[in-house]
Structure formats: C-alpha cells, structure tokens
C-alpha cells in the first residue's frame, strides 16, 4: 500500500439547501487508480470537483470539512497552483477550438514556459504518453475539433499531462466514446498510474474492475464502502454495494 496522497476529512457539500455530499472521509493512495462508482446523482462528480476546487465556480455552494493534498489543506493553496497539481479530464471531451499543438502548449505557456523547443518537447512527450502521437504527429497544426471523439479525449488527457500534475481526476472519461477508443484509454491507465495518482468516475463495472486498485461506492451523497477493488467487487461488506455491483441498482 502506497502513502496517502489525498486525505478527505468530514467533508460536507451543499448546493443551496441540497446536501450533496455527506460526511465524506477518505484516504486516497499515491500512484494508484481509485475508482468512484455509484448510481447517477449520488455525488461522484461533485466529490471529484471538490478536489480541484472546481465547485468554487458554482454560486451558492458551501463546503465544510478539510481536504489535504500531501498533508496541506487545499484551501491554503492558490487555486491556480492547486489546479496545476490536480489535473482534470471531463466527461465530454472539451478541446479548445485551436490547433492540436496549441491545445497541448496552452497549459505550459500559462505556467511560464515560453521557449519554443521546450514547448515542442512537452507537446511530443505528452502526446506520446497519451498514446496519440503516432496518429497526429503529421498534423499538429490542424484544428483539434477535427479529431474523432476518442482522439479528442486522449488530446485532453495529453493537455492535462502537459502541465505535469501529480493527480489526475477523470470524470467518466470514456462514457461518450466507442468501445475501441475506450480500450485505448483503459490501456493508457496502466502507464498513467506509474506517475500519477488517478481518480476515475465510471459507470462501467468491468472498467472499474479492470483498471482500478481501490474503489469507493457512493450512494445518496455518502460513501457506503471504500476498499481495495477486489474486496469491493468480490467480498463487499455492505448489502447495498453488492446489490449495485451485481446490477440490482440502476
């Protein structure tokens, strides 16, 4: 078992009056893949967005409790630095309407890399890590909107890697993709977890079983059970977890 990378303590989140996360406590381990599972609307995305403070953008959100990354309270970080450390890949691929190259170079530029050859290196390295390099190396200058959905999502992963985060948050990254693209991204995970702490939301139980080391089952804003993936899948402690995994829940 690796060291604890993220520690979530007694965290509650309210959208106005709606209590969306209830007393969450969770230790997330370094250099591993943690899957968040549970029916729609149970708070998985909300939880993920707490970790890079994307919920700050939504008016009327109130959060209490404490979240630490490498021992430091995330509210003490400048949010820019936090989001540099904690990258995020969204459910719907969201490349910027610019060239493939510009998409990847965007983050490093923002964080102060101006040197062209350095940027070239970062672009190539990130695209290779995201297993996209071979497909796009001849058309880096073309618009990213022209890529297929699966390629766009790998581009977004590459774009996130390019700022050298420590943690990768992925919110159902394959739910909008075809099976072949999904396979490619799942393969990618094996490599990603060597360098990053990955937290992935997925509705696909096979996927969670294949790629994750740990899994947390969410229901109505609570964590019902959180353990090693094989425990959750083969020896769940809670009846509700078992019901969900065996498909008796939505």
């Amino acid at each position: 078992m690796g060291s604890v990378k993220i520690r979530v303590k007694d965290t509650n989140l309210y959208y106005g009056n709606h209590h969306a996360l209830k007393n969450i406590n969770m230790d997330i381990y370094d250099k591993s893949v943690t899957a968040l599972i549970g029916p729609s609307g149970c708070g998985k995305s909300t939880f993920l967005r707490c970790l890079n403070r994307m919920n700050d953008l939504i008016p009327n959100v109130r959060i209490d409790g404490e979240i630490q990354i490498a021992g430091n309270d995330i509210n003490k970080y400048d949010v820019i630095l936090l989001r540099k450390k904690v990258g995020m890949v969204f459910q719907k691929p969201n490349p910027f309407p610019m060239s493939i190259y510009e998409n990847i170079a965007y983050g490093p530029r923002i964080h102060g890399t101006k040197n062209r050859s350095k940027l070239d290196n970062i672009v190539e390295k990130s695209l290779r890590e995201a297993a996209l390099w071979d497909e796009v190396k001849d058309r880096l200058k073309s618009n990213a909107m022209g890529l297929s959905g699966g390629q766009q999502q790998r581009l977004c992963i590459a774009r996130t890697i390019a700022v050298e985060p420590e943690i990768l948050l992925m919110d159902e990254p394959t739910s909008a993709l075809d099976p072949a693209s999904t396979m490619k991204i799942e393969d990618l995970m094996e490599n990603l977890k060597k360098q990053y702490t990955v937290i992935i939301v997925t509705h696909n139980m096979q996927q969670a079983g294949r790629i994750s080391d740990y899994a947390a089952f969410f229901l109505n804003g609570e964590i019902i059970e959180y353990d090693k993936t094989e425990k959750i899948f083969y020896k769940p402690m809670d009846k509700r977890t078992e019901d969900y995994i065996t498909g008796r829940f939505g």
Partner: peptide, 26 residues
C-alpha cells in the same frame, strides 16, 4: 460553451487568462 472555460481553469489558468486566450477567440 462553458466547457472551454472549465477546461482552461482546470489547467490552472487564471480567469483572465481563460477569457483572453480561450473565451474571446471563440
């Protein structure tokens, strides 16, 4: 699309950078 803005902020851009580099060009 608000996805552009979120994408930029999630990479650690400031709001102003998101405006000037992504939102206005779009």
């Amino acid at each position: 699309p608000k996805e552009y803005k979120e994408g930029s902020l999630a990479l650690g851009s400031s709001h102003w950078q998101a405006i000037i580099k992504v939102i206005l060009p779009s």
